[in-house]
Design a protein around this nucleic acid. Structure first.
Lengths: 184, 184
DNA sequence: CCGCTCATGTAACTGGTTACATGATTTA
DNA sequence: TAAATCATGTAACCAGTTACATGAGCGG
């Protein structure tokens, strides 16, 4: 999709998220940011170079990040740190207020379910089965990620995966309701 | 954000959704589509004219929709109907397969929670309280929508709102987990 | 006749996507 | 020395966003 209305002072959700990531990971290169995002099971952003490199430059231009050249062995890289202004911006973005932030979640599965009446009863059952299996896979993925994380330092990190688990559980329960509706 | 990878044969999620809406509502004008989308509590799409009018034209160019001029009283409007090819495309989009469709949901609340460690304990409690209230509001909105709908003809319609309710319930439960983590 | 809703569009913008390009350093 | 990884970028594209513009018909 195209850019949603920017939530805060002209900063997109991705920009704020990356800002937070720099705060969380400490000094790090765009490459590391990209790698970190690619590891997470979230499909929200592609972590493409074309997104990240211009983005961190924008944040530096806004003085929310500063950069310096760093080395590991002989390899050079550009390392970004968050500035006090960056921390302030991040805190403001986190909120409250949250009224504009909390909305009904977008779920492509639900979007499709809206048109289940188009299918034959047999096709509907097949669809429901496929949905269940797909949810299983996502759950496995989330749990694998959870195991991989296991950072006792930040108690909120494990909450992230818990969110994914509850999300899947809720949708599974919802599938039950759909199944019931399909049977009538 | 920018356009996600188009899920099907070059059609965006919005395009397929609108195609389904035309199927569901029967012959209707872009104006009606826009009004219908604006009534729903979903914030996924803005239902802006700049999105819808070019979109239905694209779908017509692909022969998934056909249009004709219609009248209510003296008022003229352009009415779109779905074609057999459109129905086929819609059915294909619904799936299965669903493996590419089902992912961990994007939740801006969760995104922000990731950085709760940045706040003071007092701020965290305030944040959690604000989140709870915001969820309450969303739930009320969903339930109002549910009452408004109440279409006994399509049993899947009421499943849509049920999804929203379960979604909110899951996130509320998740907030509990975060609260617990915050107390440690 | 005035204001409101119906109804259809266009124009400029933009941030993220895909895809491509390049080079340096490490490892086998 | 060849392949893989680290590392940084650019270029073209594009769908959806905001904002603006216009006019017809209907109700009071």
């Amino acid at each position: 999709m195209p850019r949603k209305a920017k939530s805060d002072a002209g900063r997109s959700e991705l920009e704020s998220f990356v800002l937070g990531l720099v705060w969380q990971l400490g000094p790090c290169s765009p490459y590391e940011l990209r790698a970190h995002m690619a590891r997470s099971p979230s499909t929200q952003w592609s972590a493409s170079a074309g997104a990240i490199y211009p983005l961190v430059r924008r944040l530096e231009a806004s003085a929310l990040l500063v950069s310096a050249t760093a080395r590991t062995g002989q390899r050079k890289r550009r390392e970004y740190r968050i500035t006090p202004a960056g921390v302030r911006a991040l805190r403001k973005w986190i909120g409250p207020p949250l009224s504009d932030v909390v909305t009904v979640a977008h779920d492509p599965l639900r979007t499709r379910a809206r048109f289940l009446a188009l299918l034959t009863p047999a096709q509907r059952l097949a669809w429901l089965e496929a949905a269940r299996k797909a949810l299983d896979q996502v759950e496995a993925q989330v749990q694998a990620w959870h195991r991989e994380l296991a950072d006792p330092a930040d108690p909120f990190a494990s909450c992230m995966t818990r969110s994914g688990e509850l999300d899947v559980a809720g949708r599974r329960q919802w599938l039950q309701a759909v199944r019931k509706a399909a049977k009538r």
